[in-house]
Design a protein around this nucleic acid. Sequence first.
DNA 1: TATTGTTATACTCTATAACTATA
DNA 2: TATAGTTATAGAGTATAACAATA
Lengths: 147, 147
Amino acid sequence: MRFDDPPPEPLASAPGFLLSWNGQRIARSFAAALEPLGLRPPHFGVMTLIEANPGSAQRELVERSMIDASTMVAVIDELEERGLAQRRADPGDRRKRAVYLTPTGKRTLERARTAAMETARAIFDPLDQRELETLTKLLRKLAGAGP
Amino acid sequence: MRFDDPPPEPLASAPGFLLSWNGQRIARSFAAALEPLGLRPPHFGVMTLIEANPGSAQRELVERSMIDASTMVAVIDELEERGLAQRRADPGDRRKRAVYLTPTGKRTLERARTAAMETARAIFDPLDQRELETLTKLLRKLAGAGP
DNA sequence: TATTGTTATACTCTATAACTATA
DNA sequence: TATAGTTATAGAGTATAACAATA
């Protein structure tokens, strides 16, 4: 059994398996799409958060993600090394580090987003527009997100 | 953000994220359901394969799963230690080890299956029967499995 | 020479706990 | 005393490569 092939019965009839299988498959494709940019999924997630909340303290980024504090340090270290993000002093509280994207970071994030969208399009290609909408609606409901 | 809470927008609108999120969530619940039985998901998967093909060589189990050879050795070692499976000599080829479930192994697998089904029921509880069928159909199509 | 199973080893990812500095 | 950030360390899980026995 490989990720390229469709799963065999009876697995392909079990919704729990199908969900986990397709989820892993898309997570993999997503990681592969990010790789040429030198990014892994956590980098993308953190950059997206920084973009939405520029100047966040690391603590806030930890709270809004599922990344713990020590991993967050490592991720932001790597973003800084690549010139994609910057830590600056927080004028009001010297313990805090305010995190920003650099212009290069913003451009890279935009490219990453494009790559991610292309990947998603390829993965969801077997479904037509209406089916994709139905799937999204059901998955939202399953996740407990509002309608 | 935690796995207990629904994901925030705009993530909750992205089908790729929703798929990965729900997939991870069910994989976690599945692992948690197995834990009281002293099993992890790979144990369950391998036991299911052995049950369907008693006397398989380890090589066959590797081919039919996504577990590599050295990991398979470790998994079967653990099943043997717990008295759930047995390696026997293959009469036709002395390199091969024919793998079987013990009676205890069969009973444990049955209990694990029950636990897994209860977990799936709890996870899919937000959907009614018709919605669950639609979701399964769409996920099958997405995975490339026949109708 | 190829195959089956095994072992030893290394690697990735993440989590835990202890530490520094500020509040 | 509590909080923000950091570092060092350990753990789970998996993969890679070398090896012994057998074909």
